[in-house]
Design a protein around this nucleic acid. Structure first.
Length: 767
DNA sequence: GTAAGAAAAATTTTT
DNA sequence: TTTTTCTTAC
C-alpha cells in the first residue's frame, strides 16, 4: 500500500473523506479499513457499511472474510442502502404502520399503479406520461417530500403548475395510499420511511446511533438527499463516519444523486480528515492522461491529480464507420485480431455503450464470428414476465394484500377470471380504499355484478393461496416454491408453452429460479437455519442479476452500459456509438450541469481500461427502422490529441469474407454511396505483420463447419436433413404455412423436436 | 372471456 | 425493429 492508502486505512476515528481517483485501489482501502477495525477488537455488529450494489457489498464481504474469517464478517452490517434499511424497517415494524411482511414494488409494479391512477382520474396520458409522473414522485421521495408535503413545497408544486401538470400531487397521494393498503413499499419508500421512522421515534434512532460506532459509505458521490440524511443521523453520536468516493465519477444525478454531498462533506464535518488516493494502478499513462484531459473541462470538482506510474502504452484509437452494422463488424474484427495477436482471453474485452439498445448490432456481429459474449444489465432476470409471475404467487402468499401480485396472477394461468371481473373488484377496492384481496374475502356481501361460476373461481383462488400461506412456516423455501409452482399450474402452463418455438426459454428460466432457491435452501440448511420462502422473498426483491455469473460466462466478451461498468476494469475497452445525441445523450445536453454529468460518464468509460481504449462512432445509425445521420461526439475532440492515435483507421489483419455485416443496408442508397468513398484502411494494428501471420496460423480459429450467412429456406422440404446454428443437425418432420412465415417442425439429433420459424432459423441443407 | 390481428409507440442511464 | 395496446371476431 502507498502512504495515502495506508493512512486512510489506519486513521479510524472522526470523520474521514477519502477521495479515490479511478483505479486507485478504493475497494482495497475500504476493506482493509474495516479489517483493521476488526483487528483492533471492534465488534463487527458496530460497523455499518453501505454500498450501492449488491455486488459491491458481496465482494467486500468476501474480501473481508478472507482476512478475518467468515464468522466475523457475517456479523457486519454490510449491504446496499436499500437492503440494510429494509431490514431495519422490518425489525422495527411494530413502531410503524407497515407489518414486517411488507412486500416491495419494483418499478414496473409502481408504473402500473401510476398508469391506472391516471386512467381512474381521467387525465390525459399525453400530458401525464406514466414514466414522467413516476420519476417526479421518485424525485420527491428522494428529496424527503412526502405526499402530504408535496403540495406545500413550491419547489415541486410550482414546477408541476408551470408544466401544466397540477394533478401530480394528487396522483402521488393516491399512489401512496394504494401502496399502503397493499402493504407494499417501492424502492424509494424504503429510504424515505426510514427517515420518517427515525424522526417519529427518536428512541429507535438512538438505538442505532449507539449501535453503529463506525459508519462507512462507498460511492458517496452517488448518495441522494434521503441517503445523506440517514447517514448523517446515524453517524451523529460517534462521528466515526468514513465516506469514500470520487466526484469525477458521479453519474447518477438523474435519479437524485447529489454531487454536493461529497463536495460539502468538509463543511458538514469541519473536524474531518481528507485523504486523496491519486495514484492509478489500473491504466497506462496514456489512458490516465487522456482521461484527465477530458475531466479537466468540468468546472465543478474537487481538485486532484490522478497519475499513473505504469508504462505509457498505446494511444487511444478512434474508428469511424458508415453504419452501425459496419461499426459492429469493424469493432468485432478488431477484437478478434487483438485476441489472436496478443493471445488474450475473450474476457479481456469489453464493449461499452451509452444505451442498451446499441447492444443488438454487436450481438449479431459477435455471433457471426463465433465470439462468445455476455450482455450485462438490460432486462434483469427477475424482471422477466415468467419470473415475475411466479414471484407474484410467492408475494401474494406472504402478503395477500399485494395488489400488483394479485392482478398479475388472478388469471394466470387462465382460470376464467377476466378483465371485466378484475376491473369490478378494482373499482370497489378503490372506493373503499382496501386491497383487492379484502374485496374478494367479502365478495358476496358486495353485490357485485359477477356471475356465480366466476365467484366460485375466485373463491378457489383465494383458498389456494390460503392453503399455501398455512404451510409457509413449516416448509423450507424450495419445497414451498416448488409446490406453489406446481399446484398453481404455472409449471404446467410453461411446460406446454415450451413445446413451441417461442416459449422454450421461459420454462428454463423458471427452472433456473427454482434451482437457485434450491441451492440457497441447501446452503441455509448446512448453516443450521433453513431458509423459508418469505425470507427468500425479502432478499430477492432487492436483487438484480449482477450475480448470475455462472462458469460458462467466465470467458466471454463483456457488453454493458457505461453506467453498469462503473467499478469494473478490462484490459481492452471499446467505447462504441460515441456520437452527438447518443453520448452525450440528447436528453442530457440541455444544461451545462447535465453535460458535465455526461462528461463524467465518459470519464468513467475511459478509465475502465487497463491497456487499450478504442473509441468508435458511426456516421449513420438505424433507429426505429430509420436511418439517422450522426456526428462524432464532442468528447472525442475534447481528448488531448497527444493521446490519440493519428492513424485513424485500422485494417483487419484477417479477412472474414463470409461476414456480410459490414455491407450497408440495401435500401439506403445514400449510405451506399458513402461506402464507395470509404477511404482505404490505413495502418494494420499489428506493426509486425510477419510474426503475426505465424501466430495466426498456429492459433487459427476453428472455422465453422457450415456457412450460415445465407439460408436455404426455399429449398427446405419435409424429410430434408438440415443443420441449425445452435441446435445442430436434424430432420424436417413437418412444414406448415407459406414461405415468409413458414414453420418447420424439426427433430434434432441431440436437442429433440422443436418448432421453428423458417425465417429466423437460418437452416442449412446438408447430406 | 379469449385469441388473433392491426395499429401505434418506443430508447438514457438503475438501486 | 420490436413491443405494447387497441380492435374485432368467435
Amino acid at each position: 500500500m502507498n502512504e495515502s492508502q495506508l493512512s486512510a486505512v489506519k486513521d479510524i476515528t472522526g470523520p474521514s473523506l477519502i477521495i479515490a481517483g479511478a483505479g486507485s485501489g478504493k475497494t482495497r482501502v475500504l476493506t482493509y479499513r474495516i479489517a483493521h477495525l476488526l483487528r483492533l477488537g471492534r465488534h463487527p455488529a458496530t460497523i455499518l457499511s453501505l454500498t450501492f450494489t449488491n455486488k459491491a457489498a458481496r465482494e467486500m464481504k468476501e474480501r473481508i472474510a478472507k482476512i478475518v474469517g467468515a464468522q466475523v464478517a457475517s456479523s457486519l452490517w454490510m449491504g446496499t442502502f436499500h437492503s440494510i434499511f429494509a431490514r431495519i424497517l422490518r425489525m422495527e415494524s411494530a413502531a410503524f404502520d407497515y407489518p414486517a411482511s411488507f412486500t416491495i414494488y419494483d418499478q414496473l409494479d409502481s408504473r402500473n399503479i401510476i398508469k391506472s391512477i391516471i386512467k381512474d382520474f381521467k387525465l390525459n396520458d399525453e400530458r401525464y406520461k406514466p414514466n414522467e409522473v413516476q420519476s417526479r414522485i421518485s424525485y420527491a421521495k428522494n428529496n424527503l417530500v412526502t405526499a402530504a408535503a408535496y403540495m406545500q413545497t413550491p419547489a415541486f408544486y410550482q414546477i408541476d403548475i408551470s408544466s401544466n401538470r397540477p394533478e401530480i400531487a394528487r396522483i402521488y397521494a393516491e399512489y401512496d395510499s394504494r401502496c399502503k393498503r397493499a402493504n407494499s413499499m417501492d424502492f424509494d419508500d424504503l429510504l424515505l420511511n426510514t427517515t420518517l421512522l427515525f424522526s417519529k421515534h427518536p428512541e429507535i434512532l438512538q438505538k442505532y446511533q449507539r449501535r453503529f460506532e463506525y459508519v462507512l459509505v462507498d460511492e458517496y458521490q452517488d448518495t441522494n438527499l434521503v441517503q445523506y440524511v440517514i447517514v448523517k443521523k446515524l453517524a451523529e453520536q460517534h462521528k466515526n463516519i468514513c465516506v469514500v468516493g470520487d466526484d469525477s465519477q458521479s453519474i447518477y444525478a438523474f435519479r437524485g444523486a447529489r454531487i454536493e454531498n461529497i463536495l460539502n462533506f468538509q463543511k458538514d464535518y469541519p473536524e474531518n480528515r481528507l485523504y486523496k488516493l491519486e495514484q492509478n494502478y489500473r491504466s497506462t499513462r496514456n489512458i490516465v492522461d487522456a482521461a484527465n484531459s477530458i475531466i479537466d473541462q468540468n468546472k465543478n470538482k474537487i481538485p486532484k491529480t490522478v497519475w499513473s506510474a505504469n508504462e505509457a502504452g498505446d494511444k487511444i484509437k478512434v474508428l469511424e464507420s458508415y453504419t452501425d452494422r459496419e461499426e459492429g463488424a469493424i469493432v468485432c474484427n478488431l477484437i478478434k485480431d487483438i485476441q489472436l495477436q496478443e493471445l488474450c482471453e475473450y474476457r479481456d474485452f469489453a464493449i461499452l455503450y451509452r444505451t442498451h439498445a446499441q447492444s443488438r448490432v454487436f450481438e449479431e456481429s459477435l455471433r457471426k464470428r463465433n465470439i462468445p459474449y455476455k450482455i450485462y444489465g438490460g432486462l434483469s432476470f427477475y424482471q422477466r414476465k415468467e419470473i415475475k409471475d411466479l414471484l407474484a404467487y410467492y408475494k401474494l402468499v406472504v402478503n395477500p394484500k399485494d395488489d400488483e401480485a394479485f392482478r398479475r396472477i388472478i388469471n394466470y394461468p387462465r382460470r376464467g377470471i377476466g378483465d371485466t371481473t378484475v376491473n369490478r373488484i378494482e373499482q370497489v377496492a378503490n372506493h373503499y380504499k382496501v386491497s383487492f384481496w379484502d374485496v374478494c374475502l367479502k365478495l358476496r356481501q358486495m353485490n357485485l355484478p359477477i356471475n356465480q361460476p366466476t365467484m366460485q373461481r375466485i373463491d378457489e383462488f383465494i383458498a389456494m393461496i390460503n392453503r399455501f400461506a398455512e404451510k409457509i412456516a413449516d416448509y423450507d423455501a424450495y419445497d414451498m416454491a416448488y409446490e406453489i409452482a406446481k399446484e398453481s399450474g404455472v409449471l404446467k402452463d410453461l411446460y406446454a408453452e415450451s413445446q413451441e418455438a417461442e416459449g422454450l426459454s421461459r420454462y428454463q428460466n423458471v427452472q433456473e429460479l427454482l434451482n437457485g432457491i434450491k441451492q440457497l435452501t441447501a446452503i441455509s440448511k448446512t448453516e443450521g437455519s433453513p431458509l423459508t420462502l418469505d425470507v427468500f422473498l425479502q432478499e430477492v426483491a432487492l436483487m438484480t442479476n449482477d450475480d448470475n455469473d455462472n462458469e460458462d460466462d467466465k470467458n466471454k466478451v463483456v457488453m454493458m452500459t457505461v453506467h453498469s461498468s462503473k467499478g469494473l476494469e478490462f484490459k481492452n475497452v471499446f467505447l462504441v456509438g460515441i456520437e452527438e445525441g447518443l453520448f452525450p445523450s440528447e436528453m442530457s445536453s440541455g444544461s451545462s450541469k447535465e453535460l458535465e454529468e455526461e462528461r463524467r460518464l465518459f470519464y468513467v468509460a475511459v478509465t475502465r481500461a487497463q491497456k487499450r481504449v478504442v473509441i468508435s462512432y458511426s456516421k449513420s445509425r438505424l433507429r426505429w427502422g430509420e436511418f439517422v445521420t450522426a456526428k462524432p461526439s464532442r468528447f472525442i475532440r475534447e481528448i488531448n490529441t497527444d493521446f490519440i492515435d493519428n492513424d485513424l483507421q485500422v485494417e483487419s489483419q484477417f479477412h472474414y469474407e463470409s461476414f456480410d455485416d459490414a455491407a450497408p443496408p440495401k435500401k439506403d442508397t445514400h449510405t451506399q454511396s458513402y461506402r464507395q468513398q470509404q477511404p482505404q484502411f490505413k495502418t494494420p494494428i499489428g506493426k509486425t505483420g510477419q510474426k503475426l501471420t505465424s501466430i495466426n496460423q498456429a492459433q487459427k480459429q476453428p472455422t465453422p463447419r457450415y456457412d450460415f450467412s445465407t439460408d436455404d429456406n426455399s429449398r427446405v422440404v419435409e424429410g430434408a436433413r438440415v443443420v441449425h446454428e445452435r441446435f445442430g443437425e436434424g430432420v424436417v418432420v413437418k412444414l406448415e404455412g407459406a414461405l415468409p412465415n413458414a414453420k418447420a417442425t424439426i427433430k434434432f439429433d441431440s436437442e429433440g423436436q422443436r418448432v421453428l420459424l423458417l425465417k429466423f432459423a437460418k437452416l442449412k441443407l446438408i447430406g
